[in-house]
Design a protein around this nucleic acid. Structure first.
Lengths: 190, 190
DNA sequence: CTCCCAACCGAACGATCGTTAGGATGGTCA
DNA sequence: TGACCATCCTAACGATCGTTCGGTTGGGAG
């Protein structure tokens, strides 16, 4: 692991634990055993460090969606999307935590870039629900906005309770089953 | 509105917008048109100000659950719980935002108190799902932990998208319907 | 051997932080 | 009238912040 990678990892860890404003450059330097002035050989500044972290996060989540085969049924793609999302959260918990929580501390310009990636991600999920409805896999009166919001709520809240080592695929499938089949007693006879 | 209330309101607004560490006592003083030293006639310190805000939040959410009639069916109580939660979020958005996001910046002792209130809230929701399953309103194989987690994900994530003036009752009912009936095409004959 | 350059250092910069001290003001109530 | 008390003030405190500066070090390339 290069110094730069160690720096990025430690920054994500501290940002996740203490928040952006609660993390000082000095504390970050201490964490990797270096004087704080030395960090500026690797980074442009504290803001840029946050921005780079956010970019990593955006890439991780979009990458998970990219890995889903296009030819599958929409509902199956949704199940895999949930699996992929939770896998990113569990596998890169600190990165995911920063991505979800700290974007608001970006300066206006980089914030707009990151928010655009977030919106694109949400739209990709919404498109899957639309596809599922149009192909008859999901109920015809389904509002894809509400459905996507529920899906994304579960996904985006995961960083608060998911822990490394959990069986994320099983958890994702359990969530998926609740979403599509519901909780009502008579909704599934078996 | 007394000075103290104005202070509490403005503190919640700033904590929600800039975060606890991103909000300075000076900025808070500016917001209410006073020198920062003057604030110490009303508060014990910045930490205590955050703590008081969190207490308000906890009270608001528990109060919403308290208002639900005990004798209703569990599923109906769940529907009203979601309504109540979203109503608090929409009606006191800044308070809800701080409650959900800033608890980690509390000192260990007050944090434990607030976290206990959070856990109690989650347990109250979980109990409703358990009751619904045991009374046969919800499927017998329902895992109340997973169900409550999904419910609370939707509830706790609402502060990111809910805005004042929205028809929160309708939104809550839409969420509730998705949760209990599911999204699958054949799950409700129509 | 020399040059270069990434990496790191100690020291200092101006700014801002939360908080305290000590005093002024003005209304309330005995 | 006079004591009090909540409210606000100016000024200052020590601490910490992100960042810059100039200089040192050490290994790889010519």
């Amino acid at each position: 692991m290069t110094r730069r990678e160690e720096l990025a990892r430690e920054a994500a860890r501290l940002f996740a634990e203490k928040g952006y404003h609660g993390t000082s450059i000095g504390a970050l330097a201490d964490a990797i055993g270096v004087q704080k002035a030395s960090l500026y050989a690797h980074i442009a500044g504290k803001q840029d460090l946050l921005f780079q972290t956010m970019r990593q996060g955006a890439e991780a989540f979009h990458g998970a969606l990219d890995a889903i085969p296009e030819e599958l049924p929409a509902t199956e793609k949704l199940r895999l999307a949930l699996r992929g999302h939770l896998r990113v959260v569990a596998g890169q918990l600190e990165l995911a935590t920063v991505f979800v929580q700290e974007w608001k501390y970006l300066e206006p310009e980089p914030r707009e870039e990151i928010l655009a990636e977030r919106r694109r991600y949400e739209e990709r999920v919404r498109a899957l629900f639309r596809e599922g409805r149009e192909h008859g896999e999901l109920r015809s009166d389904l509002d894809e906005g509400t459905a996507a919001l529920l899906f994304l709520s579960a996904a985006n809240w995961a960083f608060t309770w998911l822990r490394e080592g959990a069986d994320t695929d099983r958890l994702a499938d359990a969530f998926y089953a609740l979403l599509v089949d519901g909780m009502r007693g008579y909704s599934t006879p078996g």
